[in-house]
Computed example of a mutant assay.
Amino acid sequence: MRLVASDIDGTILSREGRISERTIRALQGCEAAGVAVVFVTGRPARWLTPLSEQLRHTGTVICSNGALVYDLSSMSVVSSQGIPRHTMLEVRDIVRGLFPETTFAAETAEEFVMETGFAEPRHRHLLGEVRHGKLEDLVTGDEVVKFMAKIEDMSAEDYFRAVAPHVGHLVSVTHSALDLTMLEMAPLGVNKAVTLAEYAHALGVSAEDVVAFGDMPNDVEMLTWAGEGYAMSSGHPRALAATELHAPGIEDDGVAQVLERKLAGLRKVG
């Protein structure tokens, strides 16, 4: 074990927004033992405060399902890959042709913008915090790092299966939201595993020396790429099916349990 790569939400961060003390100790124990730690998330860079405030992490975070790499120590973007604006609009038109009731939102390296109908009734307060309106007017730059499509009254898996075959030649498609049906789209060929592999290579770490943790469909590629990819027992069926290695659920500090065992093994070898 030379590199630990962990998803955030549902893997180390509870729905209440907390990282347990046991998990914090285990992750910090890895770094103290000389094992690098990187977080790999669907979150944008501006939503990383649980890492900086609770974990005191100051290293690299792979954000937006692999499209953006962020340095928490300098609070700056290291690199990013985007969906061209014209591709985003083409995807929008295809999805809307399939499901006219779909609403859309987009992440750039700087901000989150959304169609007015994208906000959930319980999240209407967001309309005062983000730019909203027509997608063509909101996205004025050349590209976005993440494009989202949301619909009501359908499961995320059904939505994914209906949409992905029609846009998979233009973007990478996945989903990870627990309480809403939303597709997350990244630049074609980009996912958590691709960017993690590049990061590991830069450190001189091979896949067999990477221990990864995740719980949702957007973690599948990462879990299958890593030498040891652990799906959380509390996770999505597709994540659980992707690997034979299952960590106890987040409610049982599953990441900490695995890392404690791995660290104990390192101490014995040392």
Rank of each mutant, 00 (worst) to 15 (best):
P187W: 04
T174W: 05
D215Q: 07
S14Y: 05
L27Y: 10
C63D: 10
E111S: 15
S6V: 11
P121Q: 08
E53G: 00
S234H: 09
A226G: 10
F104V: 14
A67S: 13
I19C: 05
A162R: 15
T60N: 01
E111K: 15
P217E: 03
F112T: 14
D142Q: 14
L240Y: 06
H175C: 02
A32D: 14
R43I: 07
M182W: 08
D252T: 03
E21I: 05
L55R: 10
T116N: 12
D142H: 13
W225K: 12
R238Y: 13
Q81T: 12
E221P: 02
M114K: 11
L203W: 10
E129D: 14
P50R: 03
G42F: 07
G214I: 07
R43V: 06
D179V: 08
G42A: 09
G42K: 01
N191R: 02
T87C: 08
G82D: 02
T116A: 07
R261H: 13
A36P: 00
V210S: 04
M114S: 15
K150F: 06
A231M: 05
R25L: 06
D253P: 04
L135W: 12
G133Q: 08
E198I: 00
V40M: 03
K192L: 00
T103H: 12
D179Y: 14
G265H: 07
A106G: 12
V113K: 08
K146S: 07
D7L: 02
R18L: 11
E111G: 04
L183D: 03
R238G: 02
T116G: 09
L188G: 04
A193T: 13
E157F: 05
V173N: 06
R15N: 12
L13C: 03
R15P: 00
L203R: 14
S20E: 01
Q54G: 06
R2E: 14
A32R: 15
D7A: 02
G265P: 06
T195R: 13
A242Q: 11
V210Q: 03
E157M: 07
T103G: 09
G141S: 14
E21D: 13
V61M: 05
P121S: 06
A242M: 08
L72N: 10
T195G: 05
H166A: 14
V167F: 08
L135S: 09
S14I: 04
H123Q: 14
A186S: 15
A26S: 10
L3Y: 10
M216N: 15
E157W: 04
R56F: 04
E208W: 02
I62V: 11
D7C: 04
G128F: 10
G270M: 07
S73I: 00
D93G: 01
E157G: 00
V35E: 00
L188K: 11
T58C: 09
R92W: 03
V167N: 02
R161I: 01
A177Y: 13
I151L: 14
